[in-house]
Design a binder for these strands. Structure first.
Lengths: 340, 340
DNA sequence: CTGAAAGCGCTTACAG
DNA sequence: CTGAAAGCGCTTACAG
């Protein structure tokens, strides 16, 4: 078991100073060619690679990006990570992922841990609990220490930083409008509780689309689901009592549940009931019928977020500007069988 | 913008030595109570947190685990990560994730990067290309440097290290047996190309189950799929030509495609065709009909893998034993609508 | 009880 | 052309 070789050992073997070895390997012209080549050959032979930790300490940067997301077993977040990874790797950054499990405490803990020198900057999406509490001190703190943060998807206006979002409101508007264009009149909305920022925006889009089309807004057609596991009953009631002809669901899990419940009651999708879901994922693609969705490119969001973060990290110290930007990623409707 | 405070600054402010500060904060009894409390109060006030990088360099351990997986947008791997995260966090470890994208080169690159001091040990699942090439020198090298590696799911016999797997062969056997028990006679196998280790084992289990039940083995009923996107045609042919009454698919993507194709040709699942898939995921749960699967608990695999790695990391240097273990995680059949 | 020194593995300004 | 020294932020054996 040969431990990794260090500069010190090379220096000793070759009977030169550590400085000489270091400079040779960095191809400094300060060092005579003979020595330089000798050192390089030796290092190559022993497969020398500089120790990242030592470099990080010396340079006071780690070339690592910290990602904090609520949940990894979630198609959308996985694709975002993929997107971040792509551009991070291109720029020589590695990626450290921590999960908040939608818990405020875990989010704080993980951020504190990573902020203590492990990474150069954060890309994050807020946990539900954090959004609910509205407590962002841990993020402010990190930013105050000079560590850039990019938020995506689940963001907050209370923090000034770079953000990557989709226009949830207008995407929802567009989805509902498309239902209306297809002649649907009684459109229900199945959504989450309000404190999740995106849920609220999507509701606004829904409402606006109805108003603009002179369709009476009926509060009873808005169903707020707290817990996915018990939502079947609520949805069943909605379908049986309300005589609706379309549903806009804020995520595909709700949508697929709606479809399954509908078919149990004998409703045909899309004939009797059209269904559109927010966030294109794997379920929509393989459900029967397949589900029309608002696609929200996680890859693009990840790419963009990583790009924004790295730009900031590599900006000259003094050109640091506080001009935070919010990038809006395009969405579009993927028409499938659940609408017609 | 107040940068993070260091021991040095505290020492200066309080007019004591760095050693004194360090010891006070570590609650060393060497230091007089008065000084100790004063330092602690000051540190607390300025929210001092030791720099992880400096600690890593000093201690020559990072308290970080490197994970290398082929793909993150994949339910199974996500659950494994979740499982690893759980126990890693419990033990004060953080987790660095790199994706190989099923590419040999990316796998090698990522491992080399992480091996240069960033982490204490690896948990990994081999990329397809690596399994195809059978080139594991990058893993051997890391192990030779004294860095423990735990492999899961896609493993190889060519490397001696701790492993976490399921008994793919007997799980496949069990699945096929259950089809036979339900009176199915012509059972097809839809699988991947052979070099993916788990694919091969599952095929063995399938074959064995047939033999043990005196069902003639027909090579034409084994379909090897190279590319998911073009598999519909192959599957269509299988269903139309072969007059089969059951299919065992090695993953749920194949299974759902089979079901959709079957229903297009007018076959009813499960009446005309029973379908079982390997690896329980989100698709099986929401497909119509829902799919009977062999559940392979990613959480448990992740838990176990992390536990094994941490045990090794925290074993006394000298009690290092080369007694590598292979843990087998239990699987079980989750019966759903696609079989009856 | 407190502090100077050495060291983790590296880089770089400075001396010679 | 080469090397000693200082330093990144910490810990700990050792001296006083």
């Amino acid at each position: 078991m040969k431990r990794k070789i260090t500069l010190k050992q090379i220096a000793k073997e070759l009977d030169v100073s550590i400085s000489t070895v270091s400079k040779s390997l960095r191809n400094s012209l300060e060092i005579g060619e003979e020595t330089r080549l000798k050192v390089q050959a030796f290092a190559k032979f022993y497969n020398y690679k500089p120790n990242n930790i030592a470099l990080s300490l010396k340079n006071r940067k780690t070339k690592a990006i910290g990602i904090i997301i609520p949940e990894i077993v979630h198609y959308f977040f996985s694709t975002v990570i993929n997107g971040i990874e792509q551009v991070a790797n291109e720029h020589g950054y590695s990626v450290i992922i921590c999960l908040s499990d939608d818990s405020f405490d875990k989010e704080v803990l993980n951020m504190e841990m990573l902020a203590n020198g492990s990474i150069d900057g954060f890309i994050m999406s807020l946990s539900k609990e954090t959004q609910f509490r509205g407590d962002f001190h841990h993020i402010t703190e990190v930013i105050n220490q000079g560590m850039p943060v990019v938020m995506f998807d689940r963001v907050t206006n209370d923090i000034l930083c770079d953000k990557v979002i989709i226009d949830d409101q207008s995407a929802a508007y567009e989805a509902v409008q498309s239902l209306i264009d297809k002649g649907r009149k009684k459109i229900a909305l199945v959504t989450t509780v309000d404190y999740v920022s995106v849920g609220k925006l999507r509701t606004d889009g829904y409402t606006k689309a109805l108003l603009d089309n002179d369709i009476p807004f009926d509060e009873n057609l808005i169903i707020k689901i707290e817990d996915v596991d018990t939502c079947e009953i609520t949805i069943g009631k909605l379908l049986e009592d309300k005589a609706i002809d379309a549903v806009f669901a804020v995520n595909e899990l709700f949508a697929v549940t709606i479809i399954k419940t509908a078919s149990k009651i004998g409703l045909n999708v899309p004939r009797d009931l059209a269904v559109i879901a927010f966030t294109d994922g794997i379920i929509s693609k393989y459900s029967t019928p397949t589900i029309t969705t608002v696609s929200q490119s996680g890859i693009k969001m990840g790419n963009k977020a990583a790009k924004m973060l790295i730009d900031r990290l590599e900006a000259d110290e003094d050109e640091e500007d506080e001009n935070y930007k919010t990038e809006v990623i395009e969405t579009h409707l993927i028409e499938r069988e659940s609408t017609n």
